[in-house]
Nucleic acid binder design. Structure first.
Lengths: 252, 252
DNA sequence: CGAAGGGTTGAGCCCCTTCAATCTTAGTGG
DNA sequence: CCACTAAGATTGAAGGGGCTCAACCCTTCG
């Protein structure tokens, strides 16, 4: 998977930020100059643990992870899936204490950046600060879409929507094609993302296969007709904000 | 309701920001010096309309509003309720175009601040910028809690949780007591918040009343035993982050 | 070869929806 | 003051989507 290691371990972060906002050369250099250490994690290990103080921002350099919340009755809710370029705890690195956990789905490489360094960078370079802020706003937009999905779509649309979103994000991260990819998670994980039981996820996947929306083989998903699955999913990718950069005036 | 108009129309914003972060006197002055105009809205009117460009940040000075997303099949999802002190579109004023609407629940007074002014303030005063950013992160935390609630709690817990959250936020905004308040929304609105039909909201409310969790009279809600309803709601208010300010080091 | 995790399938049930009717309340005009 | 209207609250009956429980199978790995 890591045939060609990126020239710089913070490249995925730079790639992400420039997606949100054009950066000047000094700004790019400042991003790459962030102090950091690199660590690896095994599947199932916690990258961020609920209740523990967050001293570092965690950039996901490779691998997949997910954000979970445990409900009192023991059930689990997954509120996001993370992949290369995601800063997994921008959401709470400012807050100081996490009220949820982030767990590795696959072997992960993470970049650990002291949270003061991130905040200092954000305000030393407003343009970068805007891009970071923007990133958290896009995540919030995804949260809202998930709320709508779980609240008002049926199981077919929910699963199909998740598959569409994952594919589009994979492609945007340069990790493959939205029409054909490998899911890093089990059907139980899928269910915890969309508020269904693993049993019903299984039946819904088979149903989507029967209706010709997807083809499956183990955890590989193939989509022959993007327009078709978009329709059953009610998927419109605008909420991911991948198309256009923020138009907020520059400060430089 | 407006017996004593606040000395300054941006006071609710200042109040909110100082909840997240201690501000110096010049910083407080800078917040209040923001250019703005004040407008009023009738119930059912749109404060922010989906697809329209956002040129201003909207501070809710008085009244209640909600954020909605319309799903293709015609159903509606409400992703947040807003009250005094909320900047209703910090979430998308940076993005430039809204992918959802914000609608007034009651007569509202809003402060309209040019979005460039907000961004400039945020970077001229990092401390204020941090507070603004923090505010959007708290909103994201609420989104995640709603995802968990809709996905994994039954109707009793969902409704009870919403009632708890609303009460606590009311109290934090200085608008009343969490043990006794007036709901500004219909049962249909409640249902669109938690992913239920109005019919079932009605039955659930009666059920909560029968079990002694709440007392009702029209849209007034009274809670005799906070511990009891917290238990049935699985409500822990930490996700609202009202208790403690961010511990991120100051920059001033 | 045994164990464990995860995928698949069946049967029955129940929470919530759907559809539809009735009631209450507030507002409006005569 | 009252008829009229509309929005919202309430209630009943019936149906279905997704859950629960409980198997069984398949693959991987030590």
């Amino acid at each position: 998977m890591d045939d060609q290691t990126p020239p710089h371990s913070l490249d995925p972060l730079l790639h992400r930020l420039t997606k949100w906002r054009a950066l000047t050369e000094p700004e790019r250099a400042a991003v790459l100059a962030l102090p950091h250490s690199v660590a690896t994690t095994e599947p199932r290990k916690y990258i961020i643990r609920q209740e523990s103080p967050s001293t570092h921002s965690c950039l996901l350099i490779s691998g997949f992870a997910f954000r979970e919340k445990i409900i009192v009755n023991g059930s689990r809710s997954i509120s996001s899936i993370h992949m290369r370029g995601d800063v997994v705890n921008l959401q709470n690195s400012l807050v100081g204490v996490a009220n949820h956990s982030v767990q590795a789905l696959s072997p992960c490489t993470v970049g650990l950046i002291p949270r003061e360094a991130v905040a200092e960078l954000a305000f030393a370079f407003p343009n970068i600060g805007m891009a970071l802020w923007y990133d958290t706003l896009v995540q919030a937009s995804m949260f809202r879409e998930w709320i709508a999905s779980i609240a008002r779509r049926n199981s077919r649309a929910r699963i199909a929507h998740l598959l569409c979103e994952f594919g589009v994000r994979l492609e945007a991260a340069g990790l493959g094609s939205k029409l054909n990819y490998q899911l890093p998670m089990s059907q139980e994980h899928l269910g915890d993302c969309v508020g269904l039981t693993p049993v019903h996820v299984n039946r819904t996947l088979k149903d989507l296969e029967a209706s010709g929306d997807i083809t499956r083989s183990k955890r590989e998903v193939a989509i022959a007709d993007w327009a078709k699955i978009s329709r059953t999913a009610d998927f419109k990718e605008d909420y991911l904000h991948l198309a256009s950069r923020t138009t907020t005036p520059a400060f430089v």
